[in-house]
Amino acid sequence: MNPTVKLTLIMVLALEISFTQSITMNVILTLLGLIYLLIHRIRWQTLFYFLTIPGLFAAALVWSLLYQGTATNHFAGVIFSRMYAYVFLGGAFSLTTTPYQLAQSLEQNAHLPTKFVYGILAAVNMLPRIRREVATIRSAAQMRGVTLHFWSPVLYFKAILAALKWSENTAEAMTSHGYVEDTPRSHVITISISRCDYVTAVSLFILLQGILFLPVP
């Protein structure tokens, strides 16, 4: 499915279940997400992680709501199943789409200005370097006998200094390679939204609305 269409559908559904209180709806969305992930053959390890970890946090929240609040069993069920629905809806997108695919689709289908698309993509591609830099900053301080915690301003200060330098360099590099803001670009790979994508997304959304009117919890 086209990444923009998929993301829109998933976000609309995730937003919807934040306001509705249907356990059935949440369970069906979780199952749909699970099936979609199985079709895309995600790693068993990831699947196991997605199935167990959210359960622990959902259980902690539900226990708190029942113990410290006035939540009914139905409401507790809604909150618990809602968390799983979020996780599997999100997974159905993030585990099957790469940042590059999303960027291309947002540029060509959602017409997001290219400076945002390529600017953010350039930063995302620097992630391994960012990880290394944070480790370097911390060990450099360690060598002087200073431990930088997550509440130490110096840690963030040095990170921002690196970000200032890298953003300058990257923007210059992109410009010198011929990138011009706010000008039309040609594309090697064109991404389109097929009629099938629209039909699937809209009909799935409408079908799911039916669940809310069923006499089920």
């Binding site: 997550f150 990170a159 921002i160 803001e181």
Partner: peptide
């Protein structure tokens, strides 16, 4: 919004993300 500000902003979010 210029390219450089956008990259800077994204880099800052990512740095913070890595620290978190």
């Amino acid at each position: 919004w210029h390219l450089r500000s956008i990259i800077l902003l994204a880099l800052i979010s990512l740095f913070f993300g890595v620290i978190f």
